[in-house]
């Protein structure tokens, strides 16, 4: 009966059916390309095997760091559409928060990170709810761009005023390293990598398995439609920015032990984080993870052939080539 009642004139939809394999072709191709390139470098790359292994390990761990920094950004940039220029400054802020908690209160660095997470969540909630919401809700993206730029200057200079410009290091760092296939992986970087995986997993679960996550995705897809079904769009924006900021706090806490802290330390990651977010696909947590690892590997393994900053050229070459074939990014959805 129902088959007859409506849409009799329409052929059954084909898009949905094709979606299955077609959708994952490029992500699979990227995943396959990475080991193929590595095998080529090992066999015909004319480099010392130990050196290559060390580069791969360093690259993976660096990728974890990049992923950690990018995950918060993909949420804010991808879901809210806010280009958060203060992302780097917020990363610095998290690191100094962790530094202050360890140096004055004597907390261990990873416990300080746990304390910093809710503080940054609240900070992000207030920034979006109090400063940006009026602009974001009305779709004024230029406005929010300027506000976040101003916020970035404010944060950086307040940090400069309080802590000065001398590089600082977090006390009580974790010494030691793990040896794997003759390569060295420091514990601190391994923990950062593990942290990136955990944050990515937790966020994926929240986005896909909770009703709040569904609200975030609905707002991201169509904020007017979301308001229509009773979603308080302003509050979802504020909470999303808060969660993004909490991810930044995790990144700050896990990165602080092996970086020397200056008020601009976070900004060094900003450009690469934007590259990774766009490469991985806006709003895709898995994309940020994969993008981070790809960029980390390209940078360190590429440095074997193009020393110094030359490997950054390779990074951007990969970026341009991927976007040429897939403008929405590796795990992106066409909108």
């Amino acid at each position: 009966m129902q088959e007859r009642t409506w849409a009799a004139s329409e052929a059954p939809d084909s898009d949905a059916a094709v979606g299955g394999i077609e959708k994952y072709r490029l992500p699979l191709a990227v995943a396959a390309a990475v080991p193929v390139v590595l095998v080529l470098i090992y066999t015909v790359g004319d480099k010392d095997t130990g050196l290559v292994t060390q580069s791969v390990v360093t690259g993976l761990l660096l990728g974890g760091v990049y992923a950690l920094v990018s995950i918060g950004l993909t949420l804010i940039f991808g879901v809210l559409g806010v280009i958060n220029f203060a992302h780097g400054a917020m990363l610095s802020l998290s690191m100094f928060l962790v530094f202050w908690l360890t140096s004055t209160l004597g907390l261990p660095v990873y416990l300080a990170t746990v304390v910093a997470v809710p503080l940054m969540l609240g900070f992000g909630f207030v920034v979006q709810g109090g400063l940006l919401n009026r602009l974001t809700v009305s779709g004024n993206h230029e406005g929010s761009l300027l506000v976040t730029l101003g916020l970035s200057l404010l944060i950086t200079n307040v940090l400069l005023m309080i802590f000065g410009g001398r590089p600082l290091s977090v006390p009580g760092s974790l010494e030691g390293a793990w040896r794997v296939f003759g390569a060295i992986a420091s514990y601190e970087r391994l923990i950062a990598f593990g942290g990136a995986l955990l944050v990515a997993l937790a966020l994926t679960l929240v986005l896909n398995k909770t009703s709040f996550g569904m609200c975030i995705r609905a707002v991201s897809a169509n904020s007017q439609g979301a308001a229509l079904v009773g979603v308080n769009v302003g509050r979802v924006y504020a909470l999303t920015f808060g969660i993004g900021s909490a991810c930044v706090a995790v990144a700050g806490g896990l990165l602080a032990p092996f970086l020397s802290l200056t008020p601009t330390v976070g900004e060094e990651f900003t450009i690469l984080a934007f590259v990774i977010v766009v490469l991985g696909g806006l709003g895709s947590v898995v994309g940020a993870m994969v993008g981070g690892i790809v960029i980390g590997l390209v940078q360190t393994v590429g440095a074997l052939y193009l020393p110094g900053t030359g490997s950054l050229i390779l990074v951007f070459a990969v970026f341009v080539i991927v976007l040429l074939f897939r403008p929405q990014g590796i795990f992106g959805v066409t909108r």
């Binding site: 569904m214 007017q224 308001a227 229509l228 079904v229």
Partner: peptide, 21 residues
């Protein structure tokens, strides 16, 4: 959103679906 939650709901002539969902 408050009006919608109270039980007064509208639809749009040009639909507003969440396309990716």
């Amino acid at each position: 959103d408050k009006v919608a939650s109270a039980g007064l709901v509208r639809t749009f002539q040009l639909m507003r679906p969440f396309e990716s969902m």
